[in-house]
């Protein structure tokens, strides 16, 4: 197989990789905020639930979570496609780490900002949405940038539950052509070429949002 042919064969898996990454990142993003706020809730029960979720996910391993969702859940009647399992496992995992980013950013907005907004008689909701969150969000960006990359890299794991992503394709082609060096070198390069612009993109946004303000 020529290098070009190899490349095209591999790229068939790109769509799967990007789909899983996109939906997992979206799910993780939403969960990060829901759980991040949950951990700061005034209601003890919500705090407890959020904390348990975060600690259980962070205390176990992504691949174990993926296998558990894909292989073990069907036994108690919850069945889903490999794609769904991949998205949910990566999203749940990312959400746990992301919620820490949200929580720590919110609590690191200086207390004076809250005091000033009380003095100006903003309602609690306005304080959060107009004053605290815009500042916290800028602090979250580097963390979310890293999280995106971690999730993208994590999508390679779905190849282990037989989903045809880039890594899965590489293994299949490797088994039939034995052009091992070429295949895995190209595979690494493809991942790098997806991740690199994502990293740079987040840095660019961060710069745009902070220039002259902090």
């Amino acid at each position: 197989m020529s290098t070009i042919e190899l490349l095209f064969a591999l790229l068939k898996g790109l769509r799967v990789t990007l789909t899983v990454a996109f939906f997992a990142i979206a799910l993780a993003f939403v969960l990060s905020f829901v759980v991040g706020f949950g951990r700061l809730s005034k209601i003890k029960f919500i705090r407890a639930i959020s904390t348990i979720y975060v600690e259980v996910i962070r205390g176990t391993s992504l691949l174990v979570q993926l296998f558990w969702i894909y292989f073990a859940l069907p036994i108690i009647g919850i069945r889903m496609t490999a794609m769904m399992a991949g998205i949910i496992a990566l999203g749940l995992n990312g959400g746990a780490y992301g919620s820490e980013i949200v929580r720590s950013s919110i609590i690191s907005v200086p207390v004076g900002q809250t005091e000033a907004s009380i003095a100006l008689n903003f309602t609690p909701r306005q304080r959060m949405w107009r004053i605290i969150l815009p500042q916290a969000f800028v602090m979250m960006l580097p963390g979310f940038g890293n999280l995106q990359i971690e999730i993208l890299k994590g999508t390679a794991l779905v190849s282990l539950i037989t989903l045809g992503d880039l890594t899965y394709r590489a293994n299949v082609i490797n088994a039939s052509t034995m052009e091992t060096t070429k295949i895995f070198t190209i595979l690494l390069l493809i991942y790098f070429l997806i991740a690199w612009p994502m990293t740079r993109g987040i840095e660019w946004i961060e710069k745009k949002l902070t220039v002259g303000r902090y």
Partner: peptide, 20 residues
């Protein structure tokens, strides 16, 4: 480069490519 590529693929690389 290492930080922006999956550890799983790196493991394959070490396990399958190094022998070549």
């Amino acid at each position: 480069f290492i930080r922006n590529t999956p550890i799983l693929v790196q493991l394959y690389f070490i396990f399958y490519v190094f022998p070549e």
